[in-house]
């Protein structure tokens, strides 16, 4: 039987989480949870409604070296935020691809991160911006790199007694953008994207919809500025970034080929 707990304060939230070691579902915007429950994909029945905590966990601010996005900020708010628009236009561009305007008014950044879909639009961009997440529990905070948050398919670095409280994006003078191929409605099948951030001979790369879970392309990053690489070379290099767990083969080689083409075109452009 489905049960929904409704903590009014963070103190109440952590009392619930500390009482029993359970893999609760946190109802944030509900845009993943509600359809998944309806379709029977989501079988967990213990929910915690975060809506009473939303005020405290919503908004964007900055410290000396970072822009900090509180976890329950919606993508509609993110798109309007001046700090984010100024420092991370590529991330704003990515967030506009999420669902449609209706979804963006409800969907939160923490929900997108924890949903961990390979097609989640904000993640490749956040990964190349070297974002970190703050995990909050009754024991305090721990901060980990987003790239280490994803350990494998549906395998996340978060404990049952923790919630995400902040997303920390370090400001930098890297040029960041992303390229996308395919239509937005066909979320899982034909869309492939490549996010990048570079400066001089350093580059961070991450692909959307190409792997089973969001990740950086470390092998490709390392060799990206070598001279005279060919499309074939990139095919070999990119394969190093594909682990046996990635379901890239399930859709044939299509998505892999698109990704290779995207990486190669970027290579050609940045060689100029």
């Amino acid at each position: 039987m489905i049960s929904v707990l409704r903590p009014k304060t963070t103190k109440e939230l952590f009392e619930i989480l500390d009482k029993e070691d359970k893999n609760y579902l946190f109802l944030a915007g509900g845009t993943d949870i509600m359809p998944s429950i309806k379709k029977g994909i989501e079988k967990r029945e213990d929910l915690i409604d975060l809506s009473f905590l939303k005020k405290g966990f919503s908004g964007v601010y900055r410290d000396k070296t970072n822009i900090i996005v509180k976890s329950l900020t919606t993508f509609a708010k993110i798109q309007k935020d001046e700090l984010l628009n100024k420092h991370f236009p590529s991330f704003i561009k990515a967030s506009k691809l999420i669902g449609g305007y209706t979804i963006q008014g409800m969907a939160t950044i923490a929900g997108n991160i924890v949903n961990a879909s390979p097609a989640a639009d904000s993640l490749p961009s956040l990964l190349t911006l070297n974002a970190k997440v703050t995990l909050l529990s009754s024991n305090g905070e721990r901060i980990i790199e987003l790239k280490d948050f994803y350990k494998g398919y549906k395998n996340l670095e978060i404990k049952n007694n923790e919630i995400i409280s902040n997303i920390i994006i370090p400001t930098s003078d890297y040029q960041a953008d992303f390229i996308e191929v395919g239509t937005r409605k066909a979320m899982s099948i034909t869309k492939v994207s490549l996010a990048y951030a570079y400066k001089d001979k350093n580059i961070f790369l991450s692909a959307g919809s190409a792997f089973a879970y969001p990740k950086r392309l470390f092998a490709t990053e390392k060799r990206f500025f070598e001279k005279d690489l060919t499309k074939k070379d990139f095919e070999i290099i990119l394969k190093e970034d594909v682990s046996p767990l990635d379901d890239i083969r399930s859709s044939g080689n299509y998505r892999f080929n698109v990704l290779r083409n995207l990486v190669f075109s970027l290579y050609q452009e940045l060689q100029k």
Binding site: L27, T74, A76, G105
Partner: peptide, 14 residues
């Protein structure tokens, strides 16, 4: 905020 009534549960309406 523009929202979808088909995926908004009662618990979030308080």
């Amino acid at each position: 905020e523009l929202s979808l009534a088909c995926i908004t549960p009662a618990t979030q309406l308080e």
